[in-house]
Design a protein around this nucleic acid. Structure first.
Length: 481
RNA sequence: CGGGGCGUGGCGCAGUUCGGUAGCGCGCCAGCUUUGGGAGCUGGAUGUCGGAGGUUCGAAUCCUCUCGCCCCGACCA
Protein backbone atom coordinates (compact mmCIF):
# COMPACT_ATOMS: atom_id res chain seq x y z
CA UNK A 1 0.00 0.00 0.00
CA UNK A 2 2.21 2.76 -1.19
CA UNK A 3 1.70 5.48 -3.67
CA UNK A 4 3.67 8.45 -4.84
CA UNK A 5 1.08 11.00 -3.84
CA UNK A 6 1.72 13.25 -0.87
CA UNK A 7 -1.33 13.29 1.45
CA UNK A 8 -3.42 16.43 1.14
CA UNK A 9 -3.12 17.16 4.83
CA UNK A 10 0.66 17.06 4.66
CA UNK A 11 1.16 19.44 1.77
CA UNK A 12 -1.75 20.36 -0.48
CA UNK A 13 0.41 21.95 -3.17
CA UNK A 14 2.57 18.88 -3.44
CA UNK A 15 -0.50 16.68 -3.51
CA UNK A 16 -1.78 18.70 -6.47
CA UNK A 17 1.53 18.47 -8.34
CA UNK A 18 1.90 14.76 -7.53
CA UNK A 19 -1.53 13.98 -8.96
CA UNK A 20 -0.78 15.83 -12.14
CA UNK A 21 2.43 13.88 -12.57
CA UNK A 22 1.16 10.46 -11.54
CA UNK A 23 -2.11 10.63 -13.46
CA UNK A 24 -0.17 11.90 -16.47
CA UNK A 25 -2.27 14.99 -16.92
CA UNK A 26 0.50 17.45 -17.72
CA UNK A 27 4.13 18.33 -17.24
CA UNK A 28 6.20 21.47 -17.33
CA UNK A 29 7.91 22.27 -20.56
CA UNK A 30 11.12 24.05 -21.38
CA UNK A 31 9.93 27.64 -21.46
CA UNK A 32 9.21 28.88 -17.97
CA UNK A 33 5.55 28.76 -17.09
CA UNK A 34 4.51 26.66 -20.05
CA UNK A 35 3.22 23.13 -19.83
CA UNK A 36 2.46 20.16 -21.98
CA UNK A 37 -1.07 18.89 -21.59
CA UNK A 38 -0.70 15.14 -21.90
CA UNK A 39 -3.33 12.96 -23.59
CA UNK A 40 -5.27 12.09 -20.44
CA UNK A 41 -5.32 15.70 -19.29
CA UNK A 42 -6.25 16.83 -22.76
CA UNK A 43 -9.09 14.30 -22.93
CA UNK A 44 -10.43 15.87 -19.75
CA UNK A 45 -10.18 19.30 -21.35
CA UNK A 46 -11.95 17.98 -24.44
CA UNK A 47 -14.81 16.76 -22.25
CA UNK A 48 -14.99 20.21 -20.68
CA UNK A 49 -14.95 21.77 -24.13
CA UNK A 50 -17.73 19.61 -25.43
CA UNK A 51 -19.96 20.29 -22.41
CA UNK A 52 -19.48 24.02 -22.81
CA UNK A 53 -19.61 24.10 -26.59
CA UNK A 54 -22.91 22.28 -26.64
CA UNK A 55 -24.36 24.83 -24.24
CA UNK A 56 -23.01 27.73 -26.30
CA UNK A 57 -24.64 26.35 -29.43
CA UNK A 58 -27.87 25.76 -27.53
CA UNK A 59 -27.93 29.44 -26.59
CA UNK A 60 -27.45 30.61 -30.14
CA UNK A 61 -23.71 31.12 -30.38
CA UNK A 62 -21.41 30.15 -33.22
CA UNK A 63 -17.68 29.55 -33.24
CA UNK A 64 -15.04 31.51 -35.16
CA UNK A 65 -11.32 32.07 -34.89
CA UNK A 66 -9.48 35.35 -34.53
CA UNK A 67 -5.72 35.81 -34.82
CA UNK A 68 -3.08 35.35 -32.16
CA UNK A 69 -1.27 38.58 -33.04
CA UNK A 70 -2.76 41.96 -32.39
CA UNK A 71 -1.06 45.16 -33.60
CA UNK A 72 0.00 47.04 -30.53
CA UNK A 73 -1.78 50.24 -31.50
CA UNK A 74 -5.05 48.39 -31.85
CA UNK A 75 -4.63 46.71 -28.51
CA UNK A 76 -3.92 50.03 -26.84
CA UNK A 77 -7.14 51.78 -27.76
CA UNK A 78 -8.96 51.08 -24.51
CA UNK A 79 -7.09 52.78 -21.66
CA UNK A 80 -8.09 50.64 -18.68
CA UNK A 81 -7.75 47.48 -20.72
CA UNK A 82 -4.18 48.44 -21.55
CA UNK A 83 -3.36 49.37 -18.00
CA UNK A 84 -4.69 46.07 -16.71
CA UNK A 85 -2.88 43.86 -19.19
CA UNK A 86 0.31 45.78 -19.88
CA UNK A 87 2.42 44.06 -17.20
CA UNK A 88 1.60 40.63 -18.52
CA UNK A 89 1.95 41.11 -22.25
CA UNK A 90 4.24 39.19 -24.53
CA UNK A 91 5.14 41.37 -27.51
CA UNK A 92 6.73 40.31 -30.76
CA UNK A 93 9.16 42.90 -32.06
CA UNK A 94 11.07 40.85 -34.62
CA UNK A 95 9.57 39.00 -37.54
CA UNK A 96 11.34 37.32 -40.42
CA UNK A 97 14.65 38.46 -39.08
CA UNK A 98 13.96 42.18 -39.05
CA UNK A 99 12.51 44.58 -36.51
CA UNK A 100 8.82 45.10 -37.05
CA UNK A 101 7.55 48.54 -37.84
CA UNK A 102 4.75 47.90 -35.36
CA UNK A 103 5.13 45.41 -32.53
CA UNK A 104 2.54 42.64 -32.29
CA UNK A 105 0.91 41.81 -28.99
CA UNK A 106 0.36 38.11 -28.40
CA UNK A 107 -3.28 38.10 -27.32
CA UNK A 108 -3.89 37.95 -23.59
CA UNK A 109 -7.61 38.19 -24.51
CA UNK A 110 -9.30 39.22 -27.72
CA UNK A 111 -11.70 42.08 -27.05
CA UNK A 112 -9.55 44.45 -29.07
CA UNK A 113 -9.12 42.45 -32.23
CA UNK A 114 -12.63 41.02 -32.20
CA UNK A 115 -14.14 44.44 -31.64
CA UNK A 116 -12.19 45.74 -34.61
CA UNK A 117 -13.79 43.17 -36.88
CA UNK A 118 -17.23 43.48 -35.33
CA UNK A 119 -17.16 47.14 -36.31
CA UNK A 120 -16.96 46.04 -39.93
CA UNK A 121 -19.61 43.38 -39.66
CA UNK A 122 -22.21 45.36 -37.81
CA UNK A 123 -24.05 48.06 -39.71
CA UNK A 124 -27.69 47.69 -38.82
CA UNK A 125 -29.82 46.68 -35.87
CA UNK A 126 -30.64 43.70 -38.09
CA UNK A 127 -27.04 42.48 -37.63
CA UNK A 128 -27.61 42.22 -33.89
CA UNK A 129 -27.17 40.47 -31.64
CA UNK A 130 -23.85 39.07 -32.81
CA UNK A 131 -23.04 35.98 -30.76
CA UNK A 132 -19.60 34.48 -31.38
CA UNK A 133 -17.32 32.25 -29.35
CA UNK A 134 -13.76 31.24 -30.02
CA UNK A 135 -11.63 28.41 -28.67
CA UNK A 136 -8.08 29.65 -28.49
CA UNK A 137 -4.80 29.90 -26.65
CA UNK A 138 -3.82 33.11 -24.91
CA UNK A 139 -0.63 34.31 -23.25
CA UNK A 140 -0.29 36.17 -19.99
CA UNK A 141 3.14 36.70 -18.50
CA UNK A 142 2.58 35.80 -14.87
CA UNK A 143 4.98 35.97 -11.96
CA UNK A 144 4.15 32.62 -10.57
CA UNK A 145 2.86 29.52 -12.28
CA UNK A 146 0.99 26.40 -11.33
CA UNK A 147 -0.05 23.73 -13.82
CA UNK A 148 -3.59 24.39 -15.10
CA UNK A 149 -4.23 27.13 -12.55
CA UNK A 150 -1.81 29.67 -13.92
CA UNK A 151 0.42 29.07 -16.89
CA UNK A 152 1.95 31.58 -19.26
CA UNK A 153 0.03 30.14 -22.17
CA UNK A 154 -3.36 28.62 -21.57
CA UNK A 155 -6.34 27.35 -23.51
CA UNK A 156 -9.79 28.78 -23.11
CA UNK A 157 -12.94 29.83 -24.80
CA UNK A 158 -13.86 33.46 -25.04
CA UNK A 159 -17.35 34.47 -26.05
CA UNK A 160 -17.79 37.95 -27.50
CA UNK A 161 -21.22 39.34 -28.16
CA UNK A 162 -22.62 42.64 -29.38
CA UNK A 163 -26.12 43.90 -28.66
CA UNK A 164 -28.37 46.82 -29.45
CA UNK A 165 -29.25 47.67 -25.87
CA UNK A 166 -27.78 47.59 -22.42
CA UNK A 167 -30.62 45.40 -21.23
CA UNK A 168 -29.93 42.79 -23.87
CA UNK A 169 -26.21 42.80 -23.20
CA UNK A 170 -26.72 42.54 -19.45
CA UNK A 171 -29.15 39.70 -20.02
CA UNK A 172 -26.55 37.92 -22.15
CA UNK A 173 -23.89 38.43 -19.49
CA UNK A 174 -26.06 36.77 -16.88
CA UNK A 175 -27.31 34.08 -19.27
CA UNK A 176 -23.75 32.95 -19.90
CA UNK A 177 -22.96 33.14 -16.21
CA UNK A 178 -25.86 30.74 -15.71
CA UNK A 179 -24.52 28.51 -18.47
CA UNK A 180 -21.28 28.36 -16.52
CA UNK A 181 -23.12 27.55 -13.30
CA UNK A 182 -25.01 24.79 -15.08
CA UNK A 183 -21.81 23.36 -16.51
CA UNK A 184 -19.88 23.58 -13.25
CA UNK A 185 -22.59 21.94 -11.18
CA UNK A 186 -23.93 19.36 -13.61
CA UNK A 187 -20.86 18.39 -15.61
CA UNK A 188 -17.96 19.18 -13.28
CA UNK A 189 -20.04 18.40 -10.17
CA UNK A 190 -18.64 21.49 -8.47
CA UNK A 191 -21.15 23.75 -6.74
CA UNK A 192 -20.35 27.39 -7.36
CA UNK A 193 -21.32 30.74 -6.00
CA UNK A 194 -22.23 33.21 -8.66
CA UNK A 195 -21.58 36.78 -7.90
CA UNK A 196 -20.36 40.12 -9.07
CA UNK A 197 -16.75 41.19 -8.62
CA UNK A 198 -15.80 44.27 -6.64
CA UNK A 199 -14.26 47.19 -8.53
CA UNK A 200 -10.85 45.95 -7.51
CA UNK A 201 -11.36 42.58 -9.17
CA UNK A 202 -13.28 43.76 -12.22
CA UNK A 203 -11.85 42.87 -15.62
CA UNK A 204 -9.81 45.78 -17.02
CA UNK A 205 -12.17 47.72 -19.26
CA UNK A 206 -15.40 46.06 -18.12
CA UNK A 207 -18.35 47.80 -16.52
CA UNK A 208 -19.18 44.70 -14.47
CA UNK A 209 -17.50 41.36 -14.02
CA UNK A 210 -19.46 38.34 -12.85
CA UNK A 211 -17.82 35.20 -11.57
CA UNK A 212 -18.42 31.65 -10.48
CA UNK A 213 -16.37 30.74 -7.43
CA UNK A 214 -15.82 27.19 -6.28
CA UNK A 215 -14.31 25.80 -3.11
CA UNK A 216 -11.28 23.54 -3.50
CA UNK A 217 -10.23 20.68 -1.23
CA UNK A 218 -8.01 22.95 0.87
CA UNK A 219 -10.92 25.36 1.45
CA UNK A 220 -9.48 27.98 -0.86
CA UNK A 221 -11.59 29.66 -3.50
CA UNK A 222 -11.02 29.32 -7.21
CA UNK A 223 -12.51 31.59 -9.84
CA UNK A 224 -13.75 29.10 -12.38
CA UNK A 225 -15.30 31.35 -14.97
CA UNK A 226 -16.11 34.98 -15.65
CA UNK A 227 -18.67 36.90 -17.62
CA UNK A 228 -18.32 40.60 -18.34
CA UNK A 229 -20.72 43.35 -19.26
CA UNK A 230 -18.46 45.70 -21.20
CA UNK A 231 -20.93 48.53 -21.69
CA UNK A 232 -20.06 50.63 -24.72
CA UNK A 233 -16.39 50.98 -23.80
CA UNK A 234 -15.04 48.57 -26.36
CA UNK A 235 -17.66 49.68 -28.89
CA UNK A 236 -16.35 53.17 -28.51
CA UNK A 237 -12.76 52.19 -28.95
CA UNK A 238 -13.50 50.29 -32.15
CA UNK A 239 -16.53 52.25 -33.29
CA UNK A 240 -18.86 49.27 -33.19
CA UNK A 241 -22.01 51.10 -34.27
CA UNK A 242 -25.32 50.32 -35.85
CA UNK A 243 -28.26 52.23 -37.26
CA UNK A 244 -31.37 51.62 -35.21
CA UNK A 245 -34.97 51.43 -36.40
CA UNK A 246 -35.12 55.21 -36.40
CA UNK A 247 -32.00 55.55 -38.54
CA UNK A 248 -30.03 56.81 -35.56
CA UNK A 249 -26.43 55.68 -35.12
CA UNK A 250 -25.88 53.87 -31.81
CA UNK A 251 -22.96 52.24 -30.05
CA UNK A 252 -23.26 48.53 -29.38
CA UNK A 253 -23.26 47.12 -25.89
CA UNK A 254 -20.82 44.20 -25.73
CA UNK A 255 -20.09 41.25 -23.46
CA UNK A 256 -17.32 38.72 -23.10
CA UNK A 257 -17.09 35.54 -21.06
CA UNK A 258 -14.52 32.81 -20.59
CA UNK A 259 -13.59 29.51 -19.05
CA UNK A 260 -10.06 28.18 -19.28
CA UNK A 261 -7.97 25.07 -18.72
CA UNK A 262 -8.00 26.24 -15.12
CA UNK A 263 -11.24 24.24 -14.98
CA UNK A 264 -9.10 21.10 -15.13
CA UNK A 265 -7.36 22.27 -11.97
CA UNK A 266 -10.74 22.88 -10.39
CA UNK A 267 -11.86 19.33 -11.10
CA UNK A 268 -8.64 17.96 -9.64
CA UNK A 269 -8.87 20.03 -6.48
CA UNK A 270 -12.58 19.93 -5.85
CA UNK A 271 -12.87 16.15 -6.00
CA UNK A 272 -9.42 14.56 -5.63
CA UNK A 273 -8.44 12.59 -2.53
CA UNK A 274 -5.30 10.97 -1.16
CA UNK A 275 -5.75 8.05 -3.56
CA UNK A 276 -5.59 10.42 -6.51
CA UNK A 277 -8.06 11.90 -8.93
CA UNK A 278 -11.79 11.44 -8.67
CA UNK A 279 -13.43 12.41 -11.93
CA UNK A 280 -17.11 13.16 -12.33
CA UNK A 281 -18.53 10.63 -14.83
CA UNK A 282 -19.76 13.34 -17.20
CA UNK A 283 -16.21 14.58 -17.72
CA UNK A 284 -14.22 11.38 -17.20
CA UNK A 285 -12.32 10.34 -20.34
CA UNK A 286 -12.79 6.76 -19.15
CA UNK A 287 -16.03 6.23 -17.26
CA UNK A 288 -15.70 2.52 -16.66
CA UNK A 289 -12.63 0.33 -16.60
CA UNK A 290 -13.07 -3.42 -16.83
CA UNK A 291 -10.46 -5.51 -15.06
CA UNK A 292 -10.40 -9.16 -16.13
CA UNK A 293 -9.13 -11.70 -13.62
CA UNK A 294 -7.90 -15.22 -14.26
CA UNK A 295 -5.41 -17.83 -13.08
CA UNK A 296 -5.40 -20.52 -15.71
CA UNK A 297 -5.46 -20.33 -19.46
CA UNK A 298 -8.93 -21.89 -19.61
CA UNK A 299 -10.19 -19.23 -17.25
CA UNK A 300 -8.59 -16.51 -19.34
CA UNK A 301 -10.60 -17.56 -22.37
CA UNK A 302 -13.92 -17.75 -20.60
CA UNK A 303 -13.32 -14.56 -18.67
CA UNK A 304 -12.31 -12.59 -21.74
CA UNK A 305 -15.35 -13.84 -23.59
CA UNK A 306 -17.59 -12.28 -20.93
CA UNK A 307 -15.40 -9.19 -20.71
CA UNK A 308 -15.78 -8.60 -24.42
CA UNK A 309 -19.53 -8.99 -24.20
CA UNK A 310 -19.78 -6.47 -21.38
CA UNK A 311 -17.39 -4.14 -23.17
CA UNK A 312 -19.43 -4.15 -26.35
CA UNK A 313 -22.66 -3.85 -24.47
CA UNK A 314 -21.52 -0.76 -22.57
CA UNK A 315 -19.87 0.82 -25.57
CA UNK A 316 -23.08 0.46 -27.53
CA UNK A 317 -24.86 2.35 -24.79
CA UNK A 318 -22.47 5.25 -25.32
CA UNK A 319 -20.48 4.62 -22.17
CA UNK A 320 -16.75 5.40 -22.34
CA UNK A 321 -15.33 2.05 -21.30
CA UNK A 322 -11.85 0.58 -21.35
CA UNK A 323 -10.70 -2.97 -20.80
CA UNK A 324 -7.39 -3.25 -18.99
CA UNK A 325 -5.90 -6.20 -20.85
CA UNK A 326 -2.39 -5.84 -19.49
CA UNK A 327 -1.27 -9.33 -18.52
CA UNK A 328 1.86 -8.18 -16.74
CA UNK A 329 0.00 -6.45 -13.91
CA UNK A 330 -2.00 -7.96 -11.10
CA UNK A 331 -5.63 -7.03 -10.63
CA UNK A 332 -4.73 -5.30 -7.37
CA UNK A 333 -2.26 -3.09 -9.14
CA UNK A 334 -4.83 -2.20 -11.76
CA UNK A 335 -7.43 -1.29 -9.12
CA UNK A 336 -5.07 1.18 -7.53
CA UNK A 337 -3.82 2.48 -10.84
CA UNK A 338 -7.25 3.35 -12.19
CA UNK A 339 -8.40 4.70 -8.88
CA UNK A 340 -5.41 7.03 -8.90
CA UNK A 341 -6.44 8.15 -12.37
CA UNK A 342 -9.92 8.94 -11.15
CA UNK A 343 -11.96 6.51 -13.25
CA UNK A 344 -15.45 6.70 -11.68
CA UNK A 345 -16.22 3.00 -11.66
CA UNK A 346 -14.63 -0.37 -12.24
CA UNK A 347 -16.07 -3.68 -13.26
CA UNK A 348 -14.19 -6.77 -12.11
CA UNK A 349 -14.82 -9.99 -13.98
CA UNK A 350 -13.21 -13.25 -12.87
CA UNK A 351 -13.90 -16.98 -13.03
CA UNK A 352 -16.36 -16.86 -10.13
CA UNK A 353 -18.31 -14.14 -11.87
CA UNK A 354 -18.34 -16.03 -15.15
CA UNK A 355 -19.72 -19.05 -13.34
CA UNK A 356 -22.44 -17.01 -11.69
CA UNK A 357 -23.05 -14.95 -14.83
CA UNK A 358 -22.49 -11.79 -12.85
CA UNK A 359 -19.85 -9.09 -12.28
CA UNK A 360 -18.44 -6.97 -9.46
CA UNK A 361 -18.83 -3.20 -9.39
CA UNK A 362 -16.52 -0.82 -7.54
CA UNK A 363 -17.23 2.88 -7.29
CA UNK A 364 -14.41 5.41 -6.95
CA UNK A 365 -16.34 7.79 -4.73
CA UNK A 366 -16.46 5.25 -1.90
CA UNK A 367 -13.15 3.83 -0.73
CA UNK A 368 -12.17 0.17 -0.79
CA UNK A 369 -14.61 -2.61 -0.04
CA UNK A 370 -17.32 -0.15 0.93
CA UNK A 371 -17.54 0.89 -2.72
CA UNK A 372 -17.97 -2.64 -4.05
CA UNK A 373 -21.15 -4.41 -5.11
CA UNK A 374 -21.02 -8.12 -5.80
CA UNK A 375 -23.17 -10.30 -8.01
CA UNK A 376 -24.50 -7.78 -10.52
CA UNK A 377 -26.25 -10.05 -13.06
CA UNK A 378 -24.81 -9.85 -16.57
CA UNK A 379 -28.20 -9.07 -18.00
CA UNK A 380 -28.39 -5.94 -15.89
CA UNK A 381 -24.84 -4.65 -16.23
CA UNK A 382 -25.57 -1.92 -18.77
CA UNK A 383 -28.54 -0.57 -16.91
CA UNK A 384 -26.84 -0.78 -13.53
CA UNK A 385 -23.74 0.91 -14.90
CA UNK A 386 -25.74 3.87 -16.13
CA UNK A 387 -27.51 4.10 -12.81
CA UNK A 388 -24.28 3.94 -10.87
CA UNK A 389 -22.55 6.55 -13.04
CA UNK A 390 -25.44 8.93 -12.38
CA UNK A 391 -25.24 8.17 -8.71
CA UNK A 392 -21.49 8.86 -8.61
CA UNK A 393 -21.93 12.11 -10.48
CA UNK A 394 -24.54 13.22 -7.99
CA UNK A 395 -22.59 11.99 -5.00
CA UNK A 396 -19.46 13.90 -5.99
CA UNK A 397 -21.53 17.03 -6.34
CA UNK A 398 -23.15 16.46 -2.96
CA UNK A 399 -19.81 15.79 -1.30
CA UNK A 400 -18.41 19.01 -2.71
CA UNK A 401 -21.54 20.84 -1.63
CA UNK A 402 -21.20 19.41 1.86
CA UNK A 403 -17.54 20.41 2.06
CA UNK A 404 -18.45 23.94 1.06
CA UNK A 405 -21.32 24.09 3.55
CA UNK A 406 -19.09 22.80 6.34
CA UNK A 407 -16.49 25.42 5.54
CA UNK A 408 -18.64 28.47 4.95
CA UNK A 409 -18.97 30.71 7.97
CA UNK A 410 -21.24 33.64 8.60
CA UNK A 411 -19.42 36.24 10.68
CA UNK A 412 -20.55 39.61 11.94
CA UNK A 413 -17.39 41.27 13.20
CA UNK A 414 -13.89 41.76 11.93
CA UNK A 415 -12.50 40.10 15.05
CA UNK A 416 -14.55 36.99 14.35
CA UNK A 417 -13.54 37.24 10.71
CA UNK A 418 -9.86 37.06 11.60
CA UNK A 419 -10.33 34.29 14.13
CA UNK A 420 -12.37 32.07 11.85
CA UNK A 421 -10.01 32.64 8.98
CA UNK A 422 -7.06 31.68 11.12
CA UNK A 423 -8.60 28.68 12.80
CA UNK A 424 -10.99 27.25 10.23
CA UNK A 425 -10.32 28.92 6.88
CA UNK A 426 -13.00 28.51 4.22
CA UNK A 427 -15.51 31.00 2.85
CA UNK A 428 -16.54 33.90 5.03
CA UNK A 429 -20.00 35.28 4.41
CA UNK A 430 -20.27 38.85 5.67
CA UNK A 431 -22.13 42.12 5.35
CA UNK A 432 -19.95 44.44 3.33
CA UNK A 433 -19.93 48.13 2.50
CA UNK A 434 -16.20 48.66 2.21
CA UNK A 435 -14.07 50.35 -0.41
CA UNK A 436 -11.18 49.12 -2.52
CA UNK A 437 -8.83 50.36 0.20
CA UNK A 438 -10.76 48.36 2.78
CA UNK A 439 -10.39 45.26 0.62
CA UNK A 440 -6.68 45.84 0.35
CA UNK A 441 -6.42 46.18 4.09
CA UNK A 442 -8.20 42.89 4.60
CA UNK A 443 -5.93 41.17 2.15
CA UNK A 444 -2.84 42.55 3.85
CA UNK A 445 -4.01 41.57 7.29
CA UNK A 446 -5.62 38.21 6.56
CA UNK A 447 -4.55 37.08 3.03
CA UNK A 448 -8.22 36.71 2.16
CA UNK A 449 -9.67 38.49 -0.84
CA UNK A 450 -13.18 39.54 -1.70
CA UNK A 451 -14.23 36.75 -4.01
CA UNK A 452 -17.58 38.19 -4.99
CA UNK A 453 -20.77 39.87 -3.93
CA UNK A 454 -23.10 36.88 -4.28
CA UNK A 455 -26.15 37.34 -6.46
CA UNK A 456 -28.34 34.87 -4.62
CA UNK A 457 -28.14 36.07 -1.06
CA UNK A 458 -30.48 37.47 1.50
CA UNK A 459 -31.25 41.15 1.51
CA UNK A 460 -31.59 41.55 5.25
CA UNK A 461 -29.68 44.50 6.63
CA UNK A 462 -26.66 44.21 8.82
CA UNK A 463 -23.45 45.95 9.74
CA UNK A 464 -20.47 45.94 7.44
CA UNK A 465 -17.82 43.94 9.30
CA UNK A 466 -15.15 46.52 8.65
CA UNK A 467 -16.81 49.93 8.34
CA UNK A 468 -19.82 49.28 10.56
CA UNK A 469 -22.12 50.83 7.98
CA UNK A 470 -25.64 49.47 7.63
CA UNK A 471 -25.97 47.51 4.43
CA UNK A 472 -27.91 44.69 2.84
CA UNK A 473 -24.95 43.82 0.66
CA UNK A 474 -23.25 40.50 1.37
CA UNK A 475 -19.75 39.47 0.35
CA UNK A 476 -17.73 36.27 0.26
CA UNK A 477 -14.13 36.47 1.39
CA UNK A 478 -11.63 33.62 1.14
CA UNK A 479 -8.08 32.78 0.40
CA UNK A 480 -7.87 32.15 -3.29
CA UNK A 481 -5.69 30.85 -6.06
C1' C B 1 10.53 40.64 -8.59
C1' G B 2 11.86 39.95 -2.73
C1' G B 3 12.71 35.86 1.28
C1' G B 4 13.65 30.60 1.98
C1' G B 5 14.57 25.60 -0.06
C1' C B 6 16.04 22.28 -4.07
C1' G B 7 18.25 20.46 -9.05
C1' U B 8 22.14 13.26 -9.15
C1' G B 9 18.94 7.31 -14.64
C1' G B 10 11.67 7.71 -16.30
C1' C B 11 9.91 8.83 -10.74
C1' G B 12 11.44 9.39 -5.49
C1' C B 13 16.04 9.98 -3.05
C1' A B 14 21.35 9.04 -0.64
C1' G B 15 26.23 10.77 -1.56
C1' U B 16 28.26 17.28 -0.98
C1' U B 17 30.26 18.86 5.67
C1' C B 18 35.98 16.46 5.04
C1' G B 19 37.41 16.43 -3.46
C1' G B 20 39.64 10.23 -5.32
C1' U B 21 35.85 9.30 -10.86
C1' A B 22 28.31 7.48 -8.75
C1' G B 23 24.67 4.38 -5.54
C1' C B 24 19.58 2.85 -3.41
C1' G B 25 14.13 2.03 -3.93
C1' C B 26 10.38 2.05 -7.57
C1' G B 27 9.89 1.81 -12.73
C1' C B 28 11.99 -0.26 -17.51
C1' C B 29 13.90 -4.83 -20.68
C1' A B 30 14.41 -10.59 -20.96
C1' G B 31 13.03 -15.30 -18.92
C1' C B 32 10.37 -18.45 -15.62
C1' U B 33 6.74 -18.77 -11.92
C1' U B 34 2.42 -15.69 -10.78
C1' U B 35 -2.59 -12.89 -11.13
C1' G B 36 -10.07 -11.79 -6.73
C1' G B 37 -6.57 -5.09 -3.48
C1' G B 38 -0.03 -2.25 -5.38
C1' A B 39 3.49 -10.41 -7.20
C1' G B 40 8.34 -13.36 -6.68
C1' C B 41 13.02 -15.02 -8.37
C1' U B 42 17.12 -14.67 -11.86
C1' G B 43 19.63 -11.85 -15.37
C1' G B 44 20.09 -6.97 -17.82
C1' A B 45 19.90 -1.75 -19.74
C1' U B 46 19.77 3.39 -18.60
C1' G B 47 23.50 9.14 -15.73
C1' U B 48 27.13 15.09 -20.28
C1' C B 49 25.44 14.56 -11.33
C1' G B 50 20.59 21.38 -14.49
C1' G B 51 24.18 24.51 -17.66
C1' A B 52 28.81 27.49 -18.42
C1' G B 53 33.37 28.94 -16.58
C1' G B 54 37.18 28.46 -12.77
C1' U B 55 40.45 26.09 -8.72
C1' U B 56 42.94 21.15 -8.66
C1' C B 57 47.02 15.73 -10.57
C1' G B 58 41.74 14.75 -9.83
C1' A B 59 35.15 18.05 -8.93
C1' A B 60 28.36 15.51 -7.96
C1' U B 61 31.42 17.55 -3.84
C1' C B 62 35.12 23.85 -3.52
C1' C B 63 34.50 29.08 -6.10
C1' U B 64 31.91 32.44 -9.77
C1' C B 65 28.04 33.16 -13.05
C1' U B 66 23.61 31.31 -15.11
C1' C B 67 18.96 28.41 -16.02
C1' G B 68 14.98 25.82 -13.91
C1' C B 69 11.75 23.92 -10.06
C1' C B 70 9.20 24.09 -5.09
C1' C B 71 7.26 26.98 -0.74
C1' C B 72 5.95 32.04 1.23
C1' G B 73 4.76 37.26 -0.47
C1' A B 74 3.33 41.14 -4.44
C1' C B 75 0.39 40.22 -9.84
C1' C B 76 -3.40 37.27 -12.10
C1' A B 77 -8.30 33.00 -15.81
Amino acid sequence: MTNNITPQSEDYSRWYLDIIREAELAENSEARGSMVIRPYGYALWEAIQSGLDRRFKDTGHVNAYFPLFIPKSLFQKEAEHVKGFDPELAVVTIGGGSTLEEPLVVRPTSEAIIGHHYAKWIQSYRDLPLLINQWANVVRWEMRNRPFLRTTEFLWQEGHTAHATEDEAREETLRMLDVYVDFAENDAAIPVIKGIKSDRETFPGAVNTYTIEGMMGNKWALQMGTSHYLGTKFAQMNQIKFLDQNNVSQLCHTTSWGISTRMVGAVIMAHGDNQGLRLPPVLAPIQVVIVPIWRKEAERVSVLEVVDRVHTNLRDKGIRVKVDRRDDQTPGFKYNDWEMRGVPMRIEIGPRDVQQQSVVFARRDRPGKEGKSFGIPLSEVAHETQTLLHSIQENLRLQALQTRADNTHRVTSYTAFQEVLQEKEGFLHVHWAGTTQDEERIQEETKATLRCLPLDSTTEEGQCILTGKRTSQMAIFARAY
